[in-house]
Amino acid sequence: MTIKRLLLPLFSLTLAGQALADCQLSGDYSGHAQSLSVGFSTLPAPVAIGEAFSLMLTACHDDGTPFTGQITASAVMPAHQHGMNYQPTVQRLAPGHYRLDGYLFHMPGDWQFQFRMASGGRYETVTVDYPQ
């Protein structure tokens, strides 16, 4: 077990109304798709334009079990219809816990995080607005 994995619960914040039986969402932002939810914080926070950053993300199915599938991450500026110049990488730290590296917002304005969650042949996309 890595140090990061041990430390993760220490800075977890339970989101109101999102307490689940075996899986706890954590972080400053949250989003929901058809049958699962995510919570995450940026590292560092807040995000600085032109500076690389990471996400610490938790993901839970609505039945209370941790999400353990594949995540494809991106971020877009909806008003401008463009994404980032970088493709984040996703590392699973533990069931329901992920670290995403390689983000960089190259422009001020409203961004939207997008997480495509794949599990058991099913895809769901969680979008979370990040206004600036």
């Binding site: 594949q70 494809t72 991106s74 493709q87 495509r116 794949a118 895809y123």
Partner: peptide
């Protein structure tokens, strides 16, 4: 570009 990254086709 979203259907492929570094020669690999996106799963969906």
């Amino acid at each position: 570009n979203d259907h492929a990254f570094q020669g690999k086709v996106d799963a969906q």
